[in-house]
Design a protein around this nucleic acid. Structure first.
Length: 872
RNA sequence: GGACGCAUAGCUCAGCUGGUUAGAGCGCUCGCUUCACACGCGAGAGGUCAGGGGUUCGAGUCCCUUUGUGUCCACCA
């Protein structure tokens, strides 16, 4: 026995101690045990950019609930933890920190920069792991991985080489999204569109060998410097005679063709489009179709390059001003109109993306996407909720090649070596100094690193040791469930799926459990600029991790966004305290008695009642957990614990603990139910449940590895206890009707219960004295007592001699109202029971219920009527 | 333009494959220092489940439609 439980639960005193207790016991380290079924979850590795936010807290909580439940259900449950190097995001953070010291990447050089990055990783990686522990995450820390560790890097090289050899990775000059701020290419998925106010510049181009002009409009006049054609729709009557002719590009004087392409919309603008293949993805496609020259005019710093003639070296905004000015001067600018349009921006830094032609590495997606679609269609991977499959299909079916090279330093350096002699590329798993084509030693590794998602795509198997054939991999892979937010289905989930199929010939996971995003109390997205982010550690500090976990997982629709609310946290903090005090009550009462693990045979009705309810609860909660309906499970646990166990059973039990009648059985039941509640609740509220468990008589060394309760048919008792509850409730209600009766609780009365079920009530008198303010309780088939307050319920008629306190007029009205209500309900029931189709088609139990209901309503009505008459 | 959500008590939201009288938390009203807990106990008030139509013996739940609202994808040269 441990020290006395304090009056209020203090999570701060408990949580770290309990977590260390778990660590010491090695309870979270999963064994490759052939006698057990494996259940694996890999964590979506948090970025090492900073600290965990509330969204992580949600994600980790859900995973922890699932994995703890599985661990307690006899699985060899493994939750693989780890962190993500997050190349672009981390590199930006490190650069930002360096700037404060007056340093820059260029000054430092690659090697020194990477040294700093690793120091950063150590610091922030560790702090993230610490935060996960604070949340209660039951990860197997021995298996902690990092996307840039040696094993994951080997996996990345293996995949790169395999795909390259298969022709699925290629290097080429393509139009890519260039972030001028991050100074790197980014993938299509990393471009976000934001609505912006801009201008629409109407410009005229002179038609060559003609006096006429053609008018077009653009939002980016500076790109005119790279125009190599002007396009119209092939069926546009206005321009039929111009197709095939040329125009003279203003300011530059270059002669460029007028081409016809159905991409052009006749009804938008003037129906004429300037074509800049180097700086617009669509123009690039058109350029390919029409064999147009490509003139790159923007360099990697987003400045005009030497192809821009006199505009060279100008930044883009400056170039725009200059070009517009010159156009105006030369009379080519017709008008400027305001326009609201969507502008592609870097999803990390929100800088406007400049599409430009650049030599990059790509993954050919079509051959990878096809099986990835098939696997999901065949049900080998299931999305929960199912609707997210559509989003996945849509993206996969319209996928374009994936630009994977980044002009960054923090990441997996591309394992390709360029030969300065023969110009060919050697792609290899291991570092090499020799060109595989011409054996020259004059080679140099590619400067670029890989998209950070390239390594996260391999996470479910690379984190288990792939490409080595490890025991972990053969036992724990494929993993079972992936838990993540819908915001990274494209970035991550989809890429894990096609990667796993390609490289392991298997699914990465069987189920994808998708949750929503957390919003602030006003329903806004959390963001740095709004400063409305919530630090989970602060919540844990003030309310405890259990309260936070419950607040995040409760009352949440599947896949829906969640509005964070302190009210919810507070409610669950209070719930924790409720459990704490129930346990405290039990401990005070059992003192040092030995309590048997097994239930005694001679239980009282109320004992059987609560055990039976618990048994049903086990069944339902388990089903809910299997279906990922965590919120429903919590609602049931909350209701059972608070309402059924604390408010009713403990109150019933007090009577026997006080008067000594079968007190032993009451204590056994209290301990038994309490311990089992702790088990059911443990996945949700691990800290407090473990703490209480060890303070109660127990055999198992830790709750966290104890066996989850199972539904038992043998425990199924009838539940007549509820008849008594109903009567108690209505007595309380009538006494509480202050406006009419004004009965103080201290005023106790005799209670007469007239019922056909006398046997069910005999022996339960104490319940009414204790819980319904009774002095003496009389139970019989009938009574004839004048001047009493009468309460009619379905099973009984209760007389309370409140004498002069009763307002007879009000009481009659009350009964009349009750009668009307009963009659209306009876009518509904009768209508149904007289309906042949209902009788023919409705299931038996529904008919039975309604029919029983009808009978008791009839009884109640006749009693009410005679009662009302007596008031006349 | 396409797809997908959401609309249920004053507020924030649950409500699983359709089945008695629709729930929770907070808030509100009334009463209570009842020997586990005021982070508590007891009793209440409050909902034509956005509108309309349909399927069904039966609809908050399924279908169609309207309105409002949100998100994602595509796209605006």
């Amino acid at each position: 026995m441990k020290k006395d439980l304090a009056k209020t639960y203090d999570p701060k005193e408990v949580e770290d101690r309990i977590y260390n207790f778990w660590l010491k016991g090695e309870y979270f380290s999963a064994k490759t045990d052939e006698n057990k079924t494996p259940y694996t979850i890999v964590i979506p590795p948090p970025n090492i950019t900073g600290k965990l936010h509330i969204g992580h807290a949600l994600d980790e909580t859900l995973q922890d609930i699932i994995i703890r439940h599985k661990r307690m259900s006899g699985y060899s449950a493994l939750w693989v933890p780890g962190t993500d190097h997050a190349s672009i995001a981390t590199e930006a953070k490190i650069e930002e920190a360096m700037r404060k010291e007056g340093l820059s990447k260029e000054k430092l050089g690659r090697e020194e920069f990477l040294k700093r990055a690793w120091i950063w990783k150590e610091k922030y990686g560790k702090s993230i792991i610490d935060q996960l522990k604070k949340l209660g995450a039951s990860c197997d820390w021995h298996r902690t991985r990092f996307t840039l560790d040696e094993g994951c890097s080997a996996a990345v090289r293996e995949v790169f080489v395999k795909l390259f050899e298969k022709g699925l990775i290629y290097r080429g000059e393509r139009i890519i999204n260039w972030c001028p701020n991050c100074k790197t290419s980014i993938s299509d998925a990393e471009v976000a569109f934001y609505e912006k106010e801009g201008k629409f510049w109407h410009i005229r181009y002179k038609i060559a060998n003609d006096n006429g002009f053609i008018e077009l409009a653009t939002t980016r006049p500076e790109t005119l410097l790279g125009d190599t054609a002007v396009a119209v729709h092939p069926e546009d009557e206005r321009y039929q005679n111009l197709i095939g002719k040329s125009v003279i590009l203003p300011l530059i004087g270059r002669k460029i063709p007028i081409i016809a392409d159905s991409y052009v919309e006749k009804d938008f603008g003037t129906g004429v489009v300037k074509i800049t293949p180097a700086h617009d993805p669509h123009d690039f496609e058109i350029g390919l179709r029409h064999n147009l020259p490509i003139i790159n005019i923007i360099d990697e710093k987003a400045k005009i390059n030497e192809n821009g003639g006199k505009y060279a070296n100008l930044t883009l905004p400056a170039a725009r001003d200059a070009v517009v000015n010159d156009l105006k001067k030369e009379g080519h600018l017709i008008k400027i109109e305001p326009i609201v349009h969507n502008v592609g921006s870097c999803y990390r830094c929100k800088t406007v993306i400049e599409p430009r032609i650049s030599k990059q590495w790509f993954v050919k997606m079509k051959p990878l996407a096809e099986p990835a679609i098939e696997y999901v269609k065949a049900g080998k991977i299931k999305f929960v909720p199912e609707r997210f499959e559509k989003i996945y299909y849509h993206w996969m079916e319209n996928i374009k090649d994936w630009c994977i090279s980044r002009q960054l330093w923090w990441g997996h350096r591309i394992p390709a070596f360029h030969c300065r002699d023969c110009g060919k590329i050697t792609v290899t798993r291991d570092k090499t100094t020799i060109c595989s084509h011409c054996k020259s030693l004059n080679i140099k590794q590619d400067e670029d690193t890989l998209d950070t998602w390239f390594s996260s795509a391999l996470w479910p198997f690379s984190s288990l040791g792939w490409p080595e054939k490890t025991r972990d991999l053969s036992y724990f892979y494929p993993t079972h469930t992936l838990v993540t937010g819908y915001d990274i289905i494209f970035f991550w989930v989809a890429r894990m799926i096609f990667s796993a199929i390609e490289h392991t010939n298997n699914v990465p996971f069987k189920t994808v459990f998708i949750h929503g995003l957390i919003r602030d109390e006003q329903g806004r997205k959390m963001s740095k600029s709004l400063g409305n982010g919530i630090d989970p550690l602060e919540i844990i500090e003030s309310y405890g991790a259990d309260a936070l976990r419950m607040a995040l997982a409760t009352n949440v629709g599947p896949g829906n966004d969640i509005r964070f609310s302190y009210d919810k946290v507070l409610a669950n903090r209070n719930f924790a305290n409720k459990i704490w005090n129930a346990a405290r009550f039990i401990r005070i009462n059992i003192e040092n008695e030995i309590i048997e693990e097994d239930l005694p045979t001679n239980l009282m009705l109320e004992d059987k009642w609560i055990i039976n309810l618990f048994n049903t609860l086990v069944k339902e909660v388990t089903e809910n957990l299997e279906k990922f309906e965590l919120g429903l499970a919590i609602a049931k646990l909350y209701d059972f614990t608070w309402d059924k166990f604390c408010d009713w059973y403990i109150e019933f039990a007090k009577i026997r603990l006080n008067n000594g009648t079968s007190a032993k059985e009451a204590k056994c039941t209290l301990v038994w139910v309490m311990k089992n509640i702790l088990k059911l609740l443990h996945p949700f509220m691990p800290f407090i449940t473990e703490e209480i468990y060890t303070s109660l008589p127990h055999k198992e060394e830790a709750l966290t590895i104890s066996r989850y309760p199972e539904f038992s048919k043998e425990l199924f008792y009838e539940k007549d206890q509820e008849k008594i509850e109903k009567i108690i409730e209505i007595i309380r209600a009538i006494r509480n009707r202050r406006a009419e009766l004004n009965v103080a609780p201290s005023k106790k009365t005799k209670i007469y219960i007239a019922t056909d079920f006398t046997n069910d009530f005999k022996g339960c008198e104490a319940f009414f004295t204790k819980l319904a303010y009774g002095t003496e309780i009389f139970i019989d088939k009938d009574f004839n007592i004048p001047e009493t307050l009468t309460i009619i319920s379905t099973n009984a008629k209760v007389y309370i001699p409140l004498g002069e306190l009763v307002d007879r007029q009000a009481e009659r009205q009350r009964l009349q109202k009750q009668l009307e209500k009963c009659e209306a309900q009876l009518m509904q029931a009768e209508n149904k029971l007289e309906n042949d189709e209902f009788l023919a088609k409705a299931p038996k139990h529904v008919i039975e219920k309604i029919s029983n209901n009808k009978n008791s309503l009839c009884l109640q009505i006749s009693r009410l009527k005679s009662e009302i008459d007596s008031f006349l």
